[in-house]
Simulated scan of single mutants.
Amino acid sequence: MSRMIFVNLPVADLAKARIFYEAIGFTNNPRFSDDTSACMVLTEVINVMLMTHAKWQTFTSRPIPPSTSSEVLLAVSCSSRDEVDAMNEAAAAHGGTADINPKQDHGFMYNRNLADPDGHVWEAMWMDMAAAPGGA
């Protein structure tokens, strides 16, 4: 069995966050969602648990960082440069921010960073492994 990853993120507005994540390609798993959290599925092994601040605080007493900080940068692969661009456009159109860091184009690798409505940073990236230094 493959290992799964559940990225847990505190969100100020659960409905707004869910709309945002659906717009950038995630689907909701209602089995693990309620009025305090939403399980958003990217692949069969990658999930994001969006939690209201109250729900988040049942897991830790550590403070929720402000939306202007970067606690982590989560990178997700895309199938093409166009998909990277589309994810950023969808982020900007649904309450997030596209290109919060400079776009990077290294020929064999292309990425753009976006932030969700709560400031969580994602990197949409595409890579041509055959063209990568050292070959694949």
Results as ranks from 00 to 15, higher is better:
residue 63 P to F: 04
residue 11 V to T: 12
residue 105 D to H: 08
residue 13 D to S: 09
residue 85 D to T: 07
residue 40 M to L: 10
residue 74 L to Q: 12
residue 106 H to Q: 10
residue 95 G to S: 06
residue 65 P to S: 14
residue 44 E to P: 05
residue 86 A to T: 06
residue 103 K to D: 01
residue 10 P to T: 10
residue 16 K to E: 03
residue 60 T to H: 02
residue 40 M to P: 04
residue 68 T to D: 14
residue 48 V to H: 02
residue 19 I to N: 14
residue 9 L to V: 09
residue 109 M to G: 14
residue 23 A to W: 08
residue 87 M to C: 12
residue 34 D to C: 11
residue 33 S to F: 00
residue 68 T to H: 12
residue 76 V to R: 02
residue 117 P to M: 07
residue 49 M to F: 09
residue 70 S to Q: 11
residue 116 D to Q: 02
residue 92 A to K: 09
residue 103 K to M: 04
residue 83 E to T: 11
residue 24 I to H: 03
residue 97 T to E: 15
residue 10 P to Y: 05
residue 69 S to G: 00
residue 20 F to I: 04
residue 88 N to F: 01
residue 90 A to M: 09
residue 98 A to T: 02
residue 55 K to H: 13
residue 105 D to Q: 07
residue 82 D to P: 05
residue 32 F to Y: 12
residue 110 Y to D: 02
residue 37 S to L: 05
residue 83 E to L: 11
residue 94 H to L: 00
residue 105 D to P: 14
residue 13 D to T: 04
residue 56 W to I: 01
residue 21 Y to E: 02
residue 86 A to M: 08
residue 29 N to L: 04
residue 59 F to D: 07
residue 23 A to R: 12
residue 98 A to E: 04
residue 74 L to K: 07
residue 21 Y to H: 07
residue 73 L to R: 03
residue 88 N to Q: 09
residue 17 A to W: 04
residue 75 A to N: 11
residue 25 G to W: 10
residue 111 N to V: 00
residue 18 R to V: 11
residue 46 I to L: 14
residue 67 S to M: 03
residue 117 P to K: 01
residue 38 A to S: 15
residue 59 F to T: 13
residue 18 R to L: 05
residue 112 R to C: 12
residue 32 F to W: 10
residue 111 N to E: 02
residue 65 P to M: 15
residue 37 S to P: 06
residue 76 V to T: 12
residue 6 F to A: 00
residue 24 I to T: 01
residue 3 R to D: 05
residue 102 P to A: 12
residue 69 S to F: 00
residue 12 A to K: 15
residue 60 T to R: 07
residue 38 A to D: 12
residue 14 L to F: 01
residue 70 S to A: 04
residue 81 R to N: 06
residue 65 P to K: 13
residue 71 E to D: 03
residue 45 V to E: 08
residue 64 I to R: 06
